[in-house]
């Protein structure tokens, strides 16, 4: 028990590992996002040709994945640890495997596997090729070579490594249920679990996402945020416009969980968000890349 990392130590260890590898440790974005990729430290920074190596924790929301606190490994709010490496180092897979070793994961006894999984995020016009990485059959990481972002073919290909921190902790701590993960052990010896910190809110947010989110309000906000983003883009304010695009993306996810968007209408919403993020990408490149 003593040799194994707590949830917070796991974060420290990964930060330390990637910091040693030359990554800047940045902080999460304070807008609801469905993936660490949407954080501007990834979305905007991968667009340019310049080197960019960064790592950060990103709290992530996926309304449809809520299970009222009852599923052993599904959450509507969870933590990703995101690493972005640009340009790609000589052997990124080895680096990743070293990071697993550094947090005490035996590669053979966890049957670590790279299983094909091409990744795509239509709202931000991003896609790439890579794997989901399995430990004992459980997906613990998504590993992607970005090819496109903001609708642009990338000239400098980055490698994105996204750890699911809860899944990783379950593996290291050998627990069956997310809520049993030891978050930390206080000096008094008291154990604080993931459940202590998150279980009640998982339950409440599941009710919100599936039952009580006011869909009229969400549709109205979607429209308002969308208009705001357009206005900001006209004023050349890329960062604020991008955050408003993210707010639209989250509202879309909530409406999706509420089954308020007909399948035939989904592409319309997605293309609206994509148009915004694409404009943000164009403006960002205008500022940073004089060759465009």
């Amino acid at each position: 028990m003593l040799n194994m990392l707590t949830f917070q130590e796991l974060i420290f260890a990964l930060q330390k590992f990637w910091s040693t590898q030359g990554c800047i440790i940045v902080q999460p974005i304070d807008v609801e996002v469905g993936a660490g990729t949407l954080n501007r430290h990834t979305f905007l920074h991968v667009l340019s040709k310049d080197a960019w190596n960064a790592a950060y924790v990103q709290p992530t929301r996926r309304p449809t994945d809520g299970r009222f606190g009852k599923n052993p490994n599904r959450l509507q709010h969870y933590y990703q640890f995101q690493v972005i490496l640009k340009p790609i180092p000589a052997n990124p897979q080895e680096k990743y495997l070293d990071s697993l070793k550094s947090i005490g994961l035996d590669l053979i006894d966890n049957d670590i596997r790279f299983v094909e999984d091409d990744w795509e995020h239509p709202c931000i016009g991003a896609s790439g090729l890579g794997w989901e990485i399995w430990a004992q059959g459980m997906e613990i990481t998504q590993f992607t070579y970005f090819q496109q972002c903001g609708g642009f073919e990338l000239s400098q290909i980055p490698c994105e490594i996204t750890y699911g921190l809860e899944r990783l902790a379950m593996c290291i701590q050998n627990v069956d249920n997310i809520y049993d993960i030891i978050w930390t052990i206080l000096p008094s010896g008291q154990k604080i679990t993931y459940g202590d910190i998150h279980k009640q809110e998982e339950n409440e947010w599941s009710y919100y996402n599936f039952l009580y989110a006011d869909t009229d309000m969400c549709f109205a906000h979607f429209q308002n945020y969308h208009d705001q983003a357009l206005k900001l883009l006209r004023h050349g304010l890329t960062y604020p416009a991008y955050e408003y695009a993210l707010k639209c993306s989250h509202l879309f996810n909530v409406l999706d969980a509420r089954l308020a968007i007909k399948p035939t209408n989904r592409p319309i919403f997605i293309s609206k968000i994509r148009a915004l993020t694409k404009q943000c990408a164009i403006q960002y490149l205008k500022i940073t890349d004089t060759t465009l």
């Binding site: 599904r74 006894d109 049957d111 596997r113 004992q136 059959g137 593996c171 069956d176």
Partner: peptide, 20 residues
């Protein structure tokens, strides 16, 4: 994909995933 040292542990690990 490799020969494990502790087969039972991995079997349990896999069944946890399946349970989810």
């Amino acid at each position: 994909g490799s020969k494990p040292n502790n087969e039972e542990k991995i079997a349990i690990g896999n069944s946890k995933v399946l349970k989810a």
